[in-house]
Design a binder for these strands. Structure first.
Lengths: 195, 195
DNA sequence: GTGGCTTATTGACAAATGTCAATAATTTAC
DNA sequence: GTAAATTATTGACATTTGTCAATAAGCCAC
């Protein structure tokens, strides 16, 4: 696994594929990120705190989830290898987060503070462009999720997820898949058994 | 109503408040947009077509909605005065749209092609920044909508909408509010009567 | 490897929401 | 202003999904 040798390898690939940048600048860019490995189920952000960091996942999986007063969890977002993720409303607006962040697998991540992240936008002319494109993609993904939630029933949403992200379903415990789909664990279990 | 005198007035306000720009440049910017008034229920984009335009609403209200095989409509997005809106995935990726766009009130709008819109990003240095900030806001709004859909029941979602957008509820037919909340018209009617 | 904890499955039932139909109220178009 | 169309409400019932509980299966830590 490359990340054990150079934790910045994947981020370097990501950035240099997205915008023209020379090696020296790329190094300066990446060094703004710090490196961390996490344990299974480690909490990276408590609900109620202000999200200080955005993460880039080298390996593993982060989960952004909410916990209601009855203890019911709802997974808002899942972040796997090669992707950025955080509790976005909190990170962006620097207000207390409704959601917590947890690494559901032992993970290898880079992270950068909100201040440094925004400083990159000023320092690297191409970065605002790359970030904007990335926002467009994330926004489209969230629109598609809204569509599925308002137009599909539980079974259709599960089938859609099987088509679009079969690896997620294999990889994650089904209680988390159920949370993500907005249905109960029992309903998901029944969907799976009844064809 | 200012828009009857100068249809660009509101867009000028919007842009000059968001980025430093002199009057001449502002004029060049705004003239990339064309002006149109719509009739009630006029369809601006058919589902299946590629969204050519993004709209800026001077007055009235646009609705981005999906229609399933059984004729059930689901409202994905509502766009009111002073806001940009389109069938975003289609406009951005230039692929056929799952959603249609309709002006549910007689409306006064500006519109610009995808090509011209992106050309503005190159021509006006500040515009990429303003657009990025706007994307962040829209993305956050969509995350909050996902949260409400996966954590709240119909009554809670309706109460939330009453708190955050009371004017929308007054202004739009309740069948559209119901579509937007992802519930049936009858369920919404019952929620309203039962306190 | 074993014990203990977490997760998954299944059943019985309850609650929420949808569907269909009939009627009432409202709005629109002319 | 009036007729026609659309929208809203309400009832009866069906369906979906959730909840609780019991058990089974899987997995993790030591």
């Amino acid at each position: 696994m490359p990340s054990t040798q150079n934790p910045y390898h994947q981020l370097q690939q990501f950035i240099s594929a997205a915008m023209p940048i020379d090696d020296e600048q790329l190094d300066i860019f990446c060094k703004k990120f710090r490196h961390k490995t996490t344990k299974r189920n480690e909490i990276l952000l408590q609900a109620g705190d202000i999200a200080p960091y955005i993460y880039f996942v080298n390996s593993g999986c982060l989960r952004v989830f909410m916990l209601d007063v009855n203890g019911k969890e709802s997974t808002r977002f899942l972040v796997t290898e090669g992707r950025f993720g955080t509790a976005f409303p909190s990170f962006n607006l620097q207000e207390p987060s409704l959601a917590a962040i947890q690494s559901i697998e032992p993970s290898d991540v880079l992270y950068i503070s909100q201040h440094d992240f925004h400083a990159l936008l000023d320092t690297f002319p191409g970065w605002e462009h790359v970030y904007r494109i990335s926002l467009e993609k994330d926004y489209i993904a969230s629109i598609k999720r809204i569509e599925s939630l308002i137009t599909m029933d539980a079974k259709q949403r599960y089938q859609l997820l099987m088509e679009t992200s079969p690896t997620l379903i294999q990889r994650l415990p089904s209680k988390i898949i159920a949370d993500y789909l907005g249905i109960s664990q029992e309903t998901l279990s029944r969907l799976k058994s009844k064809r």
